[in-house]
Design a protein around this nucleic acid. Structure first.
Lengths: 216, 216
DNA sequence: TAGATTGTTAATCGATTAACAATC
DNA sequence: TAGATTGTTAATCGATTAACAATC
C-alpha cells in the first residue's frame, strides 16, 4: 500500500485544519460536517473531503466527522503525537525569541540546546537553557537525540552551518536565514523567510495604491 | 489598461527573484538569460519568462535581461522604491526581536513606534524606540503616516487589536498571531504562522520516518 | 425507512511547461 | 547576417470544484 505522494498544497493546509479542530474540541464540539467546517474556514466542503481522504476516510456518511477523533488522527499525520527535540543555532534576538516561543503552548517541541559562536554569550541562560559554543554542537546532537535544528544565524554563516548539520546527521532544519539551503533530500527543510513575507505585504500595499489611483 | 489580477503563486515567487537578482547585481553580473537564471534558482526558464511578462517585458531578444534594470523594476513592482512606516504592537520577545530585525539590512522598512498594554514596559527603549501605551496607538498612527502594523500580541488579544487597527485606518497588517484575522478587503494581511511552519516540518519528518520503515 | 453526508469519480479551472515565431 | 533568446501561444499537467452513488 504505497502512499501516493501528497501535494504541497494539501500539506500546507493541514496545520490550519489542525488549528480549527483544536478550537472546536476546546469548545466542546463533538461532531462537524465538511459543510459546517467549510463555512468556518472559508474553503469548499469538497476540498475538505478531498484533503482528508488523502489519508483515509475519517468520517461517516450521514454523520460527518467526530471532532476529537479527527483531531487526534491529524495530530498523528503531522507527527504531533511524539516529542521533538530541537536545538537553536544562533542566540541573537530571533534565536532567543524563538527559544521562549517554540513550545507554542503545547508539549511536543522541546528546545534542549542553544549554540552560538560568540564567547560573550556562552553560559547565558535563556529559558533555563545555557548557550553553548558551536564546537560542542556535533557531539550534543549525537548524544541528545536531536531531531530539528533551528537556524537563526546570519545569512553569511547559514550555508556553512547547514553543512555541519548535515554532516552530523540532523533530520530537519527550520531555516530562518535568507538563503536557500542546498542539502541532501533526506534532510527536510522548512524555510521562514521573514523578509520575503514582509516584501509580499509591501507588494499588496503597492498594488492597492496603484489600483486606487487608476480609479478601480 | 486594467491590470489582470496576478495570481498568488506569482506574487509568492517575486521576493525570491528579487533576492537572487540582488545577489547577481552585488556580484557585478551585468546580464542574465532566463536559462541561466533558471539553473541558478531551480525553476524552469518558461516560468521565469511567464512571471516577468505579467508585468511587461523587461528583456531583449538575443540578449536576455539586464540585471540592474530588472532588479530595479522588480523593486518598483514590490513597492520597495519607497519607505514604509511600521509600528509593532506587542513588545514581547518576538516583537522586540522583530524591532531589531525588520530593516533587513536595507532601507525601506522603518519601525517608528512600539506599543504594549503592559505598563512595566512603557518607556523601555528597543533600538532607540520607546514602548508606548496601547492607548496612544490610534493617535500615533494618524499623526505619523504609519503604513503597516506588525501584530505580535497573544492570540487572545489579536482579533481585538486588529479591529482597532482597522478602525484607525491602517493599510496593512503583518500578523504573527495564530489566528486568521477577519478584516475588510482594503486592509492587506500577510500571515506568519510560525507554529504552522514548524508543524509542516514535523509532518515531513514524520512522513520520512514512515517511508523508511516501509522500506521505500 | 428517510435524510444526511461522506467518499469518490467526473468536470472544470488554473498554473506550469513546451514550442516557436518575432526580433534584437 | 546568423545566433541567441525573448515574448507569447498552445499543450499539458495538476489542483479544485461539482456531482452523485454509496452508506450510515
Amino acid at each position: 500500500m504505497a502512499d501516493k505522494e501528497i501535494s504541497q498544497a494539501v500539506i500546507a493546509r493541514l496545520p490550519r485544519y489542525f488549528r480549527y479542530l483544536g478550537e472546536l474540541r476546546d469548545d466542546g464540539v463533538e461532531r462537524i460536517s465538511s459543510r459546517e467546517l467549510s463555512r468556518l474556514m472559508n474553503v469548499t466542503a469538497s476540498q475538505i473531503r478531498q484533503d482528508f481522504n488523502h489519508f483515509g476516510g475519517f468520517g461517516q456518511q450521514g454523520y460527518g466527522y467526530n471532532v476529537e477523533y479527527l483531531y487526534a488522527e491529524i495530530a498523528k499525520i503531522l507527527g504531533l503525537d511524539r516529542t521533538h527535540h530541537l536545538i537553536i543555532i544562533g542566540a541573537g534576538n530571533l534565536g532567543q525569541a524563538l527559544a521562549n516561543y517554540v513550545d507554542f503552548g503545547r508539549k511536543g517541541f522541546l528546545v534542549t540546546g542553544i549554540f552560538d559562536v560568540n564567547p560573550a554569550l556562552y553560559g547565558k541562560k535563556i529559558r533555563g537553557i545555557e548557550v553553548r559554543p558551536m564546537e560542542e554542537m556535533a557531539r550534543f546532537v549525537r548524544e541528545n537525540n536531536v531531531d530539528i535544528a533551528v537556524l537563526t544565524v546570519p545569512k553569511s554563516a547559514a550555508v556553512g552551518v547547514a553543512g555541519q548539520l548535515v554532516k552530523v546527521g540532523i533530520s530537519a532544519i527550520w531555516n530562518f536565514a535568507h538563503v536557500d539551503l542546498d542539502v541532501p533530500g533526506e534532510v527536510k527543510v522548512e524555510n521562514v523567510h521573514l523578509s520575503d513575507s514582509l516584501i509580499r505585504l509591501s507588494y499588496l500595499l503597492n498594488r492597492k495604491g496603484a489600483q486606487e489611483e487608476g480609479g478601480v
